[in-house]
Design a protein around this nucleic acid. Structure first.
Lengths: 229, 229
DNA sequence: GAGTGGTCTAGACCACCGA
DNA sequence: CGGTGGTCTAGACCACTCG
């Protein structure tokens, strides 16, 4: 007999995957299930709530709980710090600052970050290496309106990402994943041929609703992001 | 005054983002917080549990709750059904079956799916279109050992994904994201130049621990996957 | 209006793990 | 060992929404 909310969650999920409860069908109410399993209603509720978060079932007051017609598929990808990603693979991590400038934000960036005309930004490009091989190329813009201390910071030793985490640990982020072709510069930095397909991640970070930083991260050829669910 | 677990969660998160509680620091215990907020301990627990799931804090019995040193970043991407993805953009969806064969699984696929020598698979390639333009190219393999009914199914009208969901609604999935270059065939199907960088998703689906299907989904040039957190 | 899920409470016991 | 979080209970009230 099931006793914990985990047991109950597993049992309900089992009935769904085995086809006892088919997509679209109505599940028993919480009170009934609580009696069936011999537990308190709160315990059943916890199990059902997690199944809802997992995209397995849909719940509505009054109408009850149904198995989702088409399961809501969502994958979670960890967004690692490059240094950790590299060292966890057992490789030696090295970071190099490639270029650094300060100036007014170009138009496309102003649009993208929602900056005012004349707002200045620190523009950094850097390279992250694993065992001496290029691993990821980083092209970052930091708003000096919000982070004036970025004007004078020396990024020779510390990568911008890790510096930024120390400044604003918790923020809102937009992420975009796409494929891009290596141009001459990228090819040189990542030691690949021009035109080679590369996985690119773009991140916009906001704090208190205001744009803090925008970054393009381009991975070396063949890089994969993986996850399971 | 905070009254619900949402209020409390927001208040705690606010103190963290504002820097009242810095990364690595110890938060008050649940009992103390419950008294502070004037609620039951279970309410504080719910708030803290969600902050843990969100990767904001770390909890350990006996030692207590700490703000994570470097916030655990994870992004959730919805894995939509192509047809829904297209129609939600207001475009007309069309599906076309390109090729279909039945035969023994090639070696690389056997390794990838963990099939036995001689296991047969149905191999399908199809095209998903939005407003008459190529949108996504699908290259799918279905294990006939697990889904014998796939041998005779006519995929002319129904896309494999949607048929599969009807057969095994809930399953375990491995996902891999990468960039690939269009070869001659892909270029023809997706109406792009050979060599063009394309975003590719590979999915392995298991049910009851056994490999059911493997698919490569290649998006048209310029496609982006986006999310926020 | 009434039935369902959403949440809160007060109390209890347990499991883990650091000192 | 003792303190912390993890979970369960029994009961209650509330909010949403369908009929």
């Amino acid at each position: 007999m099931a006793r914990t909310y985990r047991d109950i969650k597993a049992d309900i999920l089992g009935r769904i995957t085995r086809g006892d409860w088919k997509p679209g069908s109505l599940l028993p109410g919480e009170i009934e299930l609580a009696e069936t399993y011999g537990v308190a209603r709160a315990t059943v509720n916890r199990a059902m709530r997690e199944l809802t978060e997992d995209g397995i079932i849909e719940r509505k007051r009054k109408s009850g709980t149904r198995v989702r017609l088409s399961p809501l598929r969502q994958a979670r990808f960890d967004i690692p710090i490059v240094r950790h990603e590299v060292t966890e693979q057992g490789a030696a991590y090295r970071y190099a600052l490639v270029s650094s400038t300060v100036g007014p934000a170009p138009d496309w960036l102003r649009a993208r970050m929602g900056l005012q005309t004349g707002d200045e930004v620190r523009h950094l490009t850097c390279l992250h290496m694993a065992d001496g091989q290029p691993y990821q190329y980083e092209d970052r813009w930091i708003s000096l309106a919000l982070l004036p201390q970025a004007r004078v910071e020396d990024f020779a030793a510390t990568a911008p990402t890790e510096w930024l985490i120390a400044q604003i640990p918790y923020s809102e982020v937009d992420i975009s994943l796409s494929a891009t072709a290596a141009d001459e510069g990228l090819a040189a930095h990542l030691a690949c041929r021009p035109g080679e397909p590369l996985l690119q991640i773009e991140r916009s970070t906001r704090w208190d609703g205001k744009a803090v930083t925008f970054v393009q991260l381009v991975h070396r050829p063949g890089h994969r992001m993986t996850t399971r669910y």
